[in-house]
């Protein structure tokens, strides 16, 4: 095969494409250090909005609720999603499989307004008070489908003979799962968890439908602040979130790269 070469057109489209993706985010972070209250007019460097942010108790409270919901729902979603992925790849044709795959794929493309509304109406029908738990259950339902897809694609590509060897040597199914299957699919489970966590932290629409008087999440707070106009505090909050996410993604990438290198070294 000949070498693929980048043409001028290819390089230009990559540069413009990535500038388009990253400039708005960089500007947002830059203007969080703006001394002026007018978000789009540069008035000198300042970190005052970060101070204001940490003194804003309502916002801090919402951030805490958001983190708790994200952690709990991502944990539940990881367990349920891994089970669903195992069911789809290891258990062949169980009754109602078609309905099951439908229910796994549908929530991912379903408009959020529909998912949010339907869950809310369900919680009202069974008389479940809206608040922390309703948001958690709603997020679990949405994000478990993403975990399923991530774990499923790993289960599909891995070497079944390792599992079969363990079984032939007399390991019971549960033991085989925990000592062979689980370590092999662990990276995809971690990736699924992180995806579920981020999706939950990010969600406005489903949380808005299912939030109660006791529990408001950060995106709901940010949304209502944005509706009133631009606010430098929102810029500061966004910059912090972007920083956390960037660090998380970079460290996850490095970690997975190291584990790949290590397993390659062991193989030699």
């Amino acid at each position: 095969m000949t070498m693929r070469r980048l043409s001028v057109f290819n390089v230009t489209s990559l540069v413009i494409g990535f500038a388009f993706l990253y400039l708005p985010i960089l500007l947002l972070v830059l203007y969080s250090f703006n001394a002026s209250r007018l978000v789009t007019v540069w008035g000198g460097f300042s970190t005052q909005w970060y101070g204001a942010l940490f003194r804003n108790e309502a916002l801090m409270e919402a951030a805490w609720v958001t983190l708790r919901v994200a952690f709990l729902s991502a944990t539940l979603a990881t367990v349920l999603g891994t089970l669903a992925a195992l069911a789809l790849t290891r258990y062949g044709r169980f009754p109602g499989r078609t309905l099951f795959t439908g229910m796994v794929y549908a929530p991912m493309v379903m408009p959020e307004v529909i998912t949010g509304l339907s869950l809310l109406l369900f919680f009202v029908a069974v008389d479940f008070d809206r608040g922390f738990w309703t948001i958690t259950l709603a997020h679990t339902t949405l994000t478990m489908c993403f975990v399923t897809v991530v774990v499923q694609s790993r289960l599909m590509t891995f070497d079944r003979s390792l599992e079969e060897a363990a079984m032939d040597l007399g390991a019971p199914p549960l033991r085989t799962f925990f000592s062979v299957t689980l370590p092999l699919i662990a990276p995809s489970i971690v990736a699924g968890f992180l995806l579920a966590f981020t999706l939950s932290m990010d969600d406005l629409v489903i949380a808005s439908f299912n939030a109660g008087p006791g529990a408001t999440t950060l995106p709901i707070k940010i949304y209502s602040a944005v509706r009133l106009g631009l606010s430098p505090e929102v810029n500061a909050a966004s910059a912090i979130l972007i920083g956390i996410v960037t660090l998380g993604v970079i460290s996850a990438t490095l970690l997975s790269k190291r584990s790949v290198l290590r397993s390659r070294r062991n193989a030699h």
Binding site: L21, P24, I25, T40, V41, L204, S238, V249, T253
Partner: peptide, 27 residues
Amino acid sequence: AAIILPFWTSFLIRIYAWVAILKPEGL
């Protein structure tokens, strides 16, 4: 990875960033 990274940052925040850019006196 560079294409996926912005997807990990909040959707709401990325839309909010455009408000400041597209405003009449915006960036």
